[in-house]
Design a protein around this nucleic acid. Structure first.
Lengths: 165, 165
DNA sequence: TATTGTTATACTCTATAACTATA
DNA sequence: TATAGTTATAGAGTATAACAATA
């Protein structure tokens, strides 16, 4: 049972976002497992559908680090949902394309996500639901106060041992 | 630069919550470092101020696992901000109390958090800011669709090797 | 037997640094 | 020199399982 007053809960924006993110992620992960994809995999795969974006561009779109993107594409490729295509003009870059299976999974996943979102947001009054989404987009979107943000040069990690591959 | 349409961004609720949580957490962590406490530590320490709650009750309040609470209280205790007091009526439980230093840190931290929240939410129109908070409280609060939620019995970990302490 | 707190450990996500191959 | 992608690894956050003390 939650014994805190609503005023106290309201004051804790960080807590609200953390829990919302955490619970929604675990819920979407459970729902998407039915079609064999993770929330992050779906997020990336759906954005790759144009078939023209490089890994770096996808990373920027999804606000993921390039190293996270490598792992994500590895998984999607192993599952047969995406493939890396060497760029004809720059042999360093890889264009990410969805496979037919990948497109099917995206379509199924999109439905699943729509259902989950409808369940989650269904209880809110229309006006509040729209305000919530507007506010989130404003906060997180480009130029918003929560867009990316490694501003404070905080504690550096200690250097790792040299790589001996 | 974010080249997605606003409609596409709006459709991705999970993404919005993830990024909001992630960026706000890193921002509050940087701000709170000035008074030597983490966002989670502050969250727990502030809730412990009544001085009557057990670790388990605190864990429930903060929606943290009891094992996470052990680690958190360990840190707060090591920093001299909280102490574990054995319950006079049940020798299994530990009452968590804040120290004087802890109360001071909470007061300072509260100011810092208020400032960060004001910066983050300041750009939103009044109505939208209120709707955002109302909606979040409704979603995450007790009885909300995002309150706790390990409903789907998903993949179990493999058992760990027996503990030999 | 059940519960509180603890320890050990596992898993996920994210990020830093060094590295390879190109440009 | 600089950039795209890769590998190895660090670190935070969270959670499961086994355990000890107590109820």
């Amino acid at each position: 049972m939650d014994t805190r007053s609503e005023a106290e809960i309201r004051a804790d924006l960080n807590y609200l976002f953390d829990k919302a993110s955490q619970v929604l992620t675990s819920r979407t992960a459970a729902a998407l497992a039915a079609v064999g994809i993770t929330p992050r995999g779906y997020c990336v795969l759906a954005k790759a559908q144009p078939g023209t974006l490089t890994q770096g561009e996808l990373a920027e779109l999804a606000l993921l680090d390039k190293t996270t993107m490598v792992v994500t594409i590895d998984q999607l490729e192993a599952a047969g949902l995406a493939r890396r295509q060497p760029s004809p003009t720059d042999r360093r870059v890889r264009i990410v394309q969805t496979t037919e299976a990948g497109d099917q999974v995206v379509a199924q996943a999109r439905k699943i996500m729509d259902e989950v979102y409808a369940e989650v947001l269904g209880g809110l009054p229309d006006g509040e639901r729209n305000s919530l989404l507007d506010a989130l987009v404003r906060l997180v979107g480009p130029a918003g106060p929560l867009h990316a943000a490694p501003p404070v040069a905080s504690a550096r990690r200690r250097p790792s041992r040299p790589v001996r591959s």
